[in-house]
């Protein structure tokens, strides 16, 4: 039961780099009611092999909130985030510093993440200083130049410039360079390429993959784009309104999607090939009113599900194993 919805967690002795267990985050909505942005999310990132786990979901799925909790930036309402077995929110100052060093982040909006008051490369210098990565200024400079090389940026184009003087792609690469400085073991990437032009996207993703191999970095890759997730990840966790509806090995899940939401999602993605146009109208109840009707008892997807039944209204489905590394939370597959 402990491992429902996780990887082959049969092996309890395998130590994990990062464990998110039953993470839940509640927020107070405008009307005064509480709603669960993140609802009982559990996943583990292994220590041995660099792995990419994608958190896939649309807006409102809670994926970014989950990412923030994993980074220790947001305290969960319940559940734990453990780095190498230790609860991140209960760490000592030194342990937390170790954690920060090893778990870095890349964020989405490549403009917003730079303080417009300072030059863009300042944030690299701050990182070096705060984590004591260099003992002198020349050493720091060397470190920066090396990092820039790793992301295909030249010092001339990236250093000594204000954020608005750099292009979107350059800013994003600079962010990756910053994340690399501490040689982290895990990078949480929240929609790293959503706001980047298509022709630059591929290169940034390829750079990230290259870094994974070169420096043994795992990624928690947060995105709404299934195609990119497929390209980039090893495992996938699909979230809908805070709930993990399906997860598993990327190939297993995408070649045989089971959850109605995931199936609908896959069918709704436009394919860049006119020969594969949609031939018939999609069947699902497009959300009609902007109500946060999260029925606390039933399945989260009930109101839009094309195949919902009575039990879906009253009982929340649990994650069950349906393949070698494939788990689904849907009554269609419950025992």
């Amino acid at each position: 039961m402990l491992h429902a919805g996780n990887m082959e967690g049969n092996d309890l002795t395998e130590k994990f780099l990062l464990e998110a267990e039953h993470l839940t985050k509640e927020f107070k909505a405008r009307g005064g009611e509480y709603f669960k942005a993140v609802n009982d999310i559990t996943f583990r990132i292994p220590k041995e092999k660099p792995t990419v786990i994608s958190l896939v979901g649309e807006s409102g799925s809670g994926k970014t909130t989950t990412g923030l909790m994993v980074l220790g930036l947001l305290k969960p309402t319940s559940g734990t985030v453990k780095y190498e077995g230790k609860d991140v929110f209960k760490m000592s100052k030194r342990e937390f510093s170790e954690f920060r060093k090893n778990v870095q982040a890349i964020f989405q909006d490549p403009y917003e993440v730079y303080n417009p008051f300072y030059k863009a490369d300042r944030i690299l210098k701050v990182t070096i200083k705060k984590f004591k990565l260099a003992s002198s200024e020349s050493e720091a400079k060397k470190l920066i130049v090396e990092s820039l090389k790793d992301v295909n940026l030249t010092p001339e184009e990236a250093l000594n410039k204000y954020p608005h003087q750099l292009s979107g792609g350059q800013r994003q690469r600079l962010m990756i360079a910053r994340a690399l400085l501490t040689r982290p073991r895990l990078i949480v990437a929240d929609e790293p390429v959503s706001m980047v032009d298509a022709s630059l996207r591929a290169d940034i993703l390829n750079t990230m993959l290259h870094l994974k191999k070169e420096y043994n970095i795992s990624y928690l890759f947060i995105t709404h784009d299934l195609s990119i997730a497929e390209y980039f990840s090893d495992r996938i966790i699909v979230m809908y309104r805070g709930v993990n509806v399906e997860n598993g090995d990327i190939n297993e899940v995408l070649s045989n999607p089971l959850h109605p939401y995931v199936k609908t999602l896959i069918e709704s993605i436009p394919i860049p090939d006119p020969k594969r146009k949609w031939t018939e109208k999609i069947k699902f109840n497009i959300e009609d009113l902007n109500k946060r009707e999260v029925s606390s008892k039933g399945c989260i997807f009930y109101s839009r599900c094309p195949v919902a039944t009575k039990i879906c209204l009253t009982k929340r489905p649990e994650l069950v194993k349906v393949g070698k590394d494939h788990f689904v939370a849907c009554h269609l597959y419950s025992k």
Partner: peptide, 27 residues
């Protein structure tokens, strides 16, 4: 889409991942 002529068009198509196809994307 079947036969893009301009190198930029080709580049754009190659840079877009397609779900289900294991293609390598290049920018």
């Amino acid at each position: 889409f079947e036969e893009p002529l301009h190198p930029y068009t080709k580049g754009l198509i190659m840079a877009t991942p397609v779900l289900g196809e294991k293609k390598v994307i290049k920018g």
